[in-house]
Simulated scan of single mutants.
Amino acid sequence: MGLCDMNKKPALIHMVAHILGGLAFLTIPILLSPRPSHMPFFSRPTLRDLLANVLMLVIFYLNYYFFIPRLYFRKKEVLYFTIIALGFLAISYAPSLMTGYIPWNASRELHPTVLSGLQTNPRMVDDAAYLTQVKHSIFLYMAVVLFSILLRIRTKLLSTETMKHVAELGILKNQINPHFLFNTLNNIYAYAIKEEAQITATSVLKLSGMMRYVVTETGKQFVSLEKEIMYTDDYIDLQKMRLTRSMHLSYAVIGRVDQLTIAPIILMPFIENAFKHGVNPDRESYISIRIEITDNNLELVVENQKVKTSPEQHTKSGVGVENTKSRLELLYPKKHSLVIRDDESHHRVRLNLILA
């Protein structure tokens, strides 16, 4: 059995489990509904409960895969609970109306012994009678919503824990031989100074600082904005070494960067992406990078002309950006906006962050 088949097997088991669970849920009204001997197998109340369960199944998956992650986790509680309330109304009334059952005439179908225990106001009798008939669907709907929330929270916690372990493993791998790496770079720097190769020495020093920053700072949730900007400066200075006259680069940092913090390497994927797709020594092109800080607001605007580069770079370029989008959602909920405009010849990114 190949690795691909091994990866597909758990997904197939998961899908089959969902299908079987859904079918079992839908058979509840058919198998468990009380039914007098004279009543047909698929009576109107049974069909009503079956439709209610179908709607609940749809709401469960919409809630699990869309409403909870897009609304509940993003602090849009008012909109989320409004949708849940509309779902409640749909479960309460839509199945009855779809089976030709008028809720406000519910009292006519109740047994006289039930009617005798209700108040005599016709409107109240109808409401109470109808609620008596659909209360099991109402309770089941509340259980379905609560279960989907708990299941989604559990999944998110497990995902967060997994990401934490992966990050810790990555940090561990990066720290296997840091002393050897830095000692080697320091030796190269010393030789460059000795041979009076100033550009080489400066480049090695910048590269050493960048790698030290990655090893020591990226394990933290937030770092000094000043350090992050210094890392970006060094990266761009090293990129300049390979640029030709056909490449026009504009880079500016505006505003004060002290006393603010930012998630490490949160800006770099967008800048790196511009160099991946915007540098070709055989063609005229440009890259524009602007970072502006106003109070605790940071705006990054990266724009580049797209030129043909190696196919290998194109296949790898989207991974860092997609991971960064996930980090932004996790670390800056309701505190960021990201707009990416991409066409055949230009790529533009505008990122706004509210910093601590």
Results as ranks from 00 to 15, higher is better:
Leu355Gly: 06
Asp342Val: 06
Gly255Leu: 03
Leu62Lys: 10
Lys227Gly: 02
Ser148Cys: 12
Gly100Leu: 07
Phe42Cys: 09
Phe67Ser: 08
Ala24Lys: 13
Val166Gln: 13
Glu292Leu: 00
Pro178Asp: 10
Glu228Pro: 01
Glu161Lys: 07
Leu353Met: 11
Met142Ile: 15
Leu249Gly: 04
His346Thr: 07
His346Ala: 07
Ala17Phe: 13
Leu89Val: 15
Phe270Thr: 05
Asp258Cys: 01
Glu77Ala: 06
Met211Cys: 06
Ile176Val: 15
Lys8Gln: 15
Lys164Gly: 15
Ala52Arg: 13
Val257Ile: 10
Leu338Tyr: 05
Ile266Ala: 07
Leu32Tyr: 07
Asp343Ser: 07
Pro333Ile: 04
Gln305Gly: 13
Ser96Tyr: 02
Tyr189Ser: 11
Phe42Gln: 06
Val321Ser: 07
Thr27Phe: 12
Arg70His: 03
Gln221Ala: 09
Glu109Tyr: 03
Ile68Met: 05
Gln259Tyr: 01
Gly255Thr: 02
Lys76His: 08
Phe88His: 12
Asp237Glu: 14
Lys156Val: 14
Phe182Ser: 08
Met268Arg: 10
Leu51Glu: 05
Val144Pro: 05
Thr155Ser: 15
Ser107Thr: 01
Ile199Leu: 15
Asn273Lys: 11
Leu298Val: 08
Asp258Val: 04
Leu225Trp: 00
Thr216Pro: 00
His346Pro: 05
Lys227His: 07
Ile30Gly: 02
Val349Pro: 08
Phe88Lys: 06
Leu57Arg: 08
Thr324Arg: 12
Phe147Asp: 13
His111Ala: 01
Phe73Trp: 02
Thr232Glu: 03
Leu3His: 09
Glu329Trp: 02
Ile188Ser: 08
Leu330Gly: 00
Ala197Thr: 12
Leu79Gln: 07
Glu344Ser: 02
Ser250Thr: 04
Ile171Lys: 06
Tyr332Ala: 08
Lys135Ile: 15
Pro333Gly: 01
Leu205Gln: 09
Thr232Gly: 03
Gly209Met: 11
Glu292Thr: 00
Gln239Val: 14
Ser337Lys: 08
Lys325Arg: 14
Gly320Phe: 12
Ser326Asn: 12
Ser345Ile: 09
Val307Glu: 06
Glu168Cys: 00
Ser33His: 03
Glu272Trp: 08
Glu329Ala: 13
His347Gln: 10
Glu217His: 02
Leu47Arg: 10
Pro45Ile: 03
Thr200His: 12
Ile138Arg: 09
Ala201Gln: 11
Val78Trp: 07
Pro29Met: 06
Met6Trp: 04
Ala106Cys: 05
Ile354Cys: 11
Ser37Leu: 03
Thr27Ile: 07
Arg290Gly: 01
Leu140Phe: 13
Ile262Glu: 09
Ser288Met: 03
Glu344Gln: 02
Arg242Tyr: 15
Tyr101Pro: 08
His136Ala: 14
Gln239Phe: 15
Thr216Lys: 12
Val349Arg: 01
His179Lys: 14
Met6Arg: 09
Lys220Ile: 02
His18Phe: 12
Thr294His: 04
Glu168Thr: 00
Ser345His: 02
Leu185Gly: 07
Lys306Trp: 09
Met142Gly: 14
Arg341Phe: 09
Val214Tyr: 04
Pro69Trp: 08
Lys8Arg: 14
Leu158Met: 15
Gly219Asn: 04
Val319Glu: 05
Met268Gly: 05
Met6Val: 06
Pro40Ala: 03
Val78Glu: 06
Phe67Val: 03
Gly318Phe: 12
Glu312Cys: 00
Gly100Ala: 03
Asn296His: 09
Asn304Glu: 14
Thr99Pro: 02
His248Asn: 10
Met56Glu: 03
Ala192Ile: 14
Gly278Ile: 13
Ile271Ala: 07
